[in-house]
Design a protein around this nucleic acid. Sequence first.
RNA 1: GGCCCCUUCGUCUAUCGGCUAGGACAUCUGGUUCUCAUCCAGGUAAGAGCGGUUCGACUCCGCUAGGGGCUGCCA
Length: 430
Amino acid sequence: MRFAPSPTGKVHIGNIRAAIYNWLFARHTGGKFLLRVEDTDLERSTPEAIKVLFECMEWLGLDYDEEVFYQTKNVNRHLAVVEQLIASGHAYKCEKTSRDGKTGTVVMFKMPKEGVIEYDDIVKGHMAKKAEDIQDFAIVRSDGSPIFHIANVVDDIDQRITHIIRGDDHVENTFKHICIFRALGAPVPKYGHLSMIVNQQGKPYSKRDGAAFVGEYREQGYLPEALFNYLLLLGWNPGDDREVLSRDEMVKLFELEKVHVTAAMFDPKKLAWMNGEYIKKIPQAEFKALLKEKVKVEGEGEEWWDYLCAQVQPRTKFLNDLDTSCAYLASEDYPFDEKAVAKRLQKDGVKATLLDLVERFAKVDDWTAPVLEEMVKGLSQGQGMGPWVHPIRVAVSGRGEGIGLFEMLQLLGREKTLARLKSAAEKYCP
RNA sequence: GGCCCCUUCGUCUAUCGGCUAGGACAUCUGGUUCUCAUCCAGGUAAGAGCGGUUCGACUCCGCUAGGGGCUGCCA
């Protein structure tokens, strides 16, 4: 199998899904998965664009067998094959005027004029088309460069590709390509065409629909495993209720025959959910290292970090949220959310409550979450701790939501808690 | 226009002639003696339409409607 993208500087999610399906099919069947860079568009195929492609592949754990195959290095072969086709009467030179008005000599592939071209698509089933419905098509431009159809087929022959898994937009090309394989006396590979990924409006997913490229998910703090898993589920399932699958399970269970024919709508919410599921799976030590990197707190011991991780990890959906959601831990100059301040602090009586708490908290010897909770519970006299809990939270963290309040206080320690309650009461309360 | 393909809850899907149509995300309700971006319990919600085959059709066939792809000296 092969993944044959043209490097344009970004990798589209629909494209990478094709790579994922190819990769899984190869790993499942024990075949080889090759990477071919279709870099014949010299303007867009820069070294940077190729680098981006490699980075995406690596990020998602899509490793490939054999060396990378660059299409530009095979141009002489493409042209030699074209000569062969002309000699055997399967292609001919012809004067043609292109859409933009250029006139020149191109080489056309001669389609059969009668009969039916058919093949069994691994995902779409039996496909057939009358030869007369397909026009002859160009395979060499007037500047002498080979066109996609011939380059693609010749490279597939040279790389000994047996299964071609690609996007739905290539189904019509398949009938043409089959004819080229036959004209060359080469075995026709098996084909499988993947449906498109569509946006919320049911239209093909384009860059206007927000994140259409793999790199954007990476930047937004998505885990590669989550994106991989989500994209896999968009058009395939193991046949039971399992959704979050390990890489090993995916390889074991994946079957191309079970891939769907219908277009799938991309649902960012489900991806977000899945990302949270994968964040929960991150080994504790690894998550701790990540957290330390994002949230700069000096002088706390491992125990403190472990305790924080236990609170934060299960609530995290995006790694990128970590620095803002934990900002109050890193600095005394933490930001205050306006809405939270208005709702919880700018109310009559709150100032008195907070200052009263400062006095009570000052007397607590054993500064731990359970002790603090007992204390506030005592104050609430069974009426609910809301009137205490909410103002405290906003005062010490600047936010209306976050980890458990008493755990938060324990993490902050007595000194910071008292200072923050006092200063927030002075600064924000009427 | 021509050719090809598709059509189950809002979304991703299960079902391969027996269905009280199942699950997940989202949403709603309740619980978890604080928030929810955790956890638990529950609810709302689907077979595009019309014919045919059949004891029986979401499943098979036909037509209609709707959607998509292709129709380049792009890939």
